[in-house]
Design a protein around this nucleic acid. Structure first.
Lengths: 168, 168
DNA sequence: GCCCAACGGCTGCCTCAGCAACTATAGCGA
DNA sequence: TCGCTATAGTTGCTGAGGCAGCCGTTGGGC
């Protein structure tokens, strides 16, 4: 038993998960300084990189780790806080869009530089460019295998395979 | 703004987080087949690799992603399910140990091989040995930097730096 | 044009986990 | 020895998020 628990494979994902936990904690601390949670940051980011800074609720759900009901509630909170607004869809009265407000864009603009700095400081900057490239290549290969159907939603947009974004 | 969101650093952690999400989903699916959650598997694993298959509640909390109250409740559930038992500490009447029961060890023995297989299939096996070594080296370097004080608790045990384990 | 299955979003209910408050014990200093 | 502070664990309360069920809308088949 003990032997099985010392398996190098266990060690490997253990390491991977430790890195994840470490990064997540750093990110969360900075998000909190700006009154955001990781989920809220992700929502803001995904909307901001979509055409017109908006996405249908369902598409937003598909692009995040949330269910549609989860999205309903995050958007509720962020709408209450003035970061987002709901907008009716002209062509389908069942649908509604979540749109980033001016305040939301402003908030994002405040958070992003710090976020990038943290990524640089604790992730990309820890490796020389060559190692980083190798790491990303390995990750890409694993991602392509495990593919949780990345790049969902966004309907008409991003026809490419792009890596998608954000954290948590 | 759009330009900032296409920063290669964003792409890099995005990729990292996608891999994490993908692996986590695969693991969760297999855990569920055996009636476990990711957290429960982690608890089981951490106890099983500790001396006497036990750990004080506080040390268990330190080794997992949970707060002490979180540990109280997971242990409650797992005790109810017969996987763990609480045992009083002889030298400190405030403390109690969580111990893996025979049923708990049995369950772990049922889950582990599949878990290792999944790691192999979707993570380590996706890369040739050399790439894997490089990846692990890179992760180790990042981990050492971001270090969420790995390897906590376990008091007298594991004086080494070991990578620690498990998932979730 | 009508009907019905599928879809988009929201709400009720549940579980999980954290924080803060509380109790009991330990251990130290005077 | 007495007391005071720190520590171990538990519990009440809260917020987050998932699932299932609901309502309104849509669009295809006839």
């Amino acid at each position: 038993m003990k032997n099985e628990l010392d398996d190098p494979r266990i060690t490997a994902i253990g390491l991977f998960y430790e890195v994840h936990a470490g990064l997540t904690a750093r990110f969360a601390a900075q998000f909190e300084e700006h009154g955001l949670s990781a989920v809220e940051f992700e929502v803001l980011t995904r909307l901001a990189r979509s055409p017109n800074n908006q996405l249908r609720m369902t598409d937003l759900a598909a692009q995040t780790s949330l269910s549609t009901s989860g999205v309903t509630r995050v958007v509720d909170r962020m709408e209450r806080d003035g970061l987002l607004a709901r907008r009716a869809c002209a062509t389908d009265r069942r649908s509604s869009f979540a749109v980033v407000t001016a305040a939301g864009m402003q908030r994002l603009k405040e958070v992003l530089p710090g976020h990038l700095r943290i990524i640089e400081e604790w992730f990309t900057g820890q490796l020389d460019p060559e190692s980083l490239a190798t790491l990303l290549d390995a990750l890409r290969r694993i991602r392509d295998a495990v593919h949780p159907c990345a790049t969902a939603g966004s309907s008409t947009a991003t026809p490419t395979d792009d890596e998608v974004s954000t954290s948590a």
